[in-house]
Design a protein around this nucleic acid. Structure first.
Lengths: 343, 343
DNA sequence: CCAGCTATGTAACACGTGTTAGTAACCTGC
DNA sequence: GCAGGTTACTAACACGTGTTACATAGCTGG
């Protein structure tokens, strides 16, 4: 039975040298005689010695890891293809720069409580309202961070998407086609959010839809709004509910492709043709949307680029380049086969 | 300019107490007078003091984090829905137990080199051959780990799937339908793998297909084999190639649903009907496969369960329960609309 | 033959925490 | 008035590393 893991002191004692010599043998070969180095390495091998990761990190002051702070539990994050794409972009940078990625969900439903348990060089903060405490906490901690899917904040770099413009564009497109009875499948902001959609990307998307409606003499009270979690099944259910009501919509504006898939599922089951009877649009342009039948009309946002830029900004900040760039990525309307003029 | 982050020593000095008192003020309130506690906390607040994560981890000997060791780069991992599902299962356990998840890709193309840079309490090791060095490295490091998608190894817990049985079942099903010209879309094992498919789940799946073929007087040399990365586009390309050759297959056995989607894409583009002209089967039963048109016949493997059990086993091991359970999960053939008798 | 340099090794410091053992001061009860 | 216990705090240890400043010994060159 090995009582406990051997340390560099154990190796030093066994080899009859000082602890410094052991360190040199591993990290600074030319600083020590070749013969003793051999002996030390041999003893280390025999004892099964490995330098402690935490010890080295503490001394070096770096972890080679970047944290991603999520507002939801990991199970929900990994269920959402949006985050998969985002992590793919961040992962590209991590692969290139030799960083690992620490996925950090809330601890006991609190994002702030999770922060002290993450041994990272910096954070990518996803979808948090800037005035809810987490940002202040990171600020005072003095650890670099980047904001994503949030609001502009002067204290840190951020990467945003022109949600308002994108949502406005797709809504305007539907209105120009002649649709007047619109329904919006929005994303449930979840518990702990102060007011519904008053901040962040969701609010901007709704505002964009409002912009478009205003151009046609309408406003947001003229559309039906459903707020559901971002799963295909929830999109399906919400659409069944919507279509069961009197005066069902002729166009469904989903704020996520995943919800749009579910909407089409429901309509197909109800034998309602898409797009001739009801049009459906998404948001994101996930890879699947091009393969989906009918091919989905949607607002493309550059998710992978977002992840890549977030990681790039963060690594720059970690390296001490003290700029705070704010990047606004643009969206583009991808018109495919799920939209048409109303019947 | 704040010169550097304040430590507990700084707080102690500023409050005129010892460093221990500071620690007590934070972690052991009733161990210290309420008045001095207040004073210490107030001074700490003023200085902007936060206990160092790494310092605490080093002393506590625990990181509250579990590592996932991947054989591929993060960008590829996150592109693969299989891993999303797997991480969803592992994430459920992490959510419940308060662990974070450290995604650890190879460092400079070496999995072994990545290990010392991961500050974790244990590893989930994905898809590695047990005799390639990583397992020995983890063994000698004395850190708990669990093997996934590998081969049974006596030194550690493992979670496997009955790949051989599952692949055999779907192949036998196609053969019983009357198909004789089969093509297999297999997964490119990637660089650094000793011999093609001689180990791990891929080998077992091919063996299972061999079993079924043997029942009909055939063997693996009678089927065409393409090995490609697990992306829809690669499945598409490989299928176009297969169908362009003389005597094209009447059934395509994909070893991943993602590849099966691509195969159907290619066949639709070639105006080859699925399933009446060519049957297609997948492996995994991703959520999308039930929504896919035609609904995909596939081998369901319990990916989420796999992730959950892996994390459960690992946490048990971390807590010192020294069993080494080996779980074999069973598959089931899900017959849907992408398969039929040959024309 | 000795000043000065190089090669080799070590002691000490720094990174930052939590916890145990120990010491005063104070209070209680007989 | 004092033994015995509690309270409040501190010194020291433990966790494990890398690195800087210093001490020897040996060698080289004039």
């Amino acid at each position: 039975m090995r009582s406990r893991k051997p340390t560099s002191s154990d190796v030093a004692a066994a080899a009859g040298v000082s602890r410094s010599a052991v360190s040199f043998a591993f990290n600074n070969p030319q600083r020590i005689a070749a013969a003793t180095r051999e002996r030390i390495l041999s003893v280390a091998e025999e004892l099964g010695y490995r330098p402690s990761t935490l010890g080295r990190m503490l001394q070096a002051g770096t972890t080679n890891s970047i944290g991603v702070l999520f507002p939801q539990r990991l199970a929900q994050v990994m269920e959402n293809p949006y985050y998969s794409r985002f992590l793919m972009g961040a992962g590209q940078v991590c692969d290139r720069e030799g960083y690992t990625l620490l996925l950090t969900p809330p601890l006991r439903d609190s994002v702030i409580k999770a922060i002290p348990y993450a041994a990272v060089d910096g954070f990518i903060v996803c979808g948090l309202e800037v005035d809810r405490g987490e940002v202040a906490e990171l600020d005072r901690r003095g650890i670099p961070f980047v904001l994503i899917d949030s609001d502009r904040h002067e204290g840190a770099p951020s990467v945003e998407v022109d949600d308002r413009g994108g949502a406005g564009e797709v809504a305007r497109y539907l209105l120009e086609l002649g649709h007047r009875r619109l329904a919006v499948l929005s994303i449930d902001p979840g518990p702990g959010v102060t007011e519904r959609g008053y901040r962040g990307p969701l609010a901007r998307r709704l505002a964009g839809i409002g912009d478009a409606l205003a151009d046609f003499g309408l406003d947001l009270t003229d559309v039906r709004l459903a707020e559901v979690p971002v799963t295909r099944t929830d999109g399906y259910r919400a659409t069944r509910d919507l279509m069961a009501q009197p005066d069902p919509p002729t166009a469904i504006v989903a704020l996520s492709d995943m919800l749009a898939y579910g909407a089409v599922d429901a309509l197909q089951e109800l034998a309602v043709d898409v797009p001739s009877e009801v049009s459906v649009t998404g948001f994101d342009d996930l890879a699947e949307s091009a393969w989906f039948r009918p091919r989905l009309t949607t607002v493309r946002q550059p998710i992978v680029t977002k992840g890549r830029m977030a990681a790039d900004f963060l690594i720059s900040a970690i390296r001490g380049e003290d700029q705070h760039p704010h990047q606004m990525l643009s969206t583009s309307l991808i018109i495919r086969d799920s939209t048409a003029k109303p019947a």
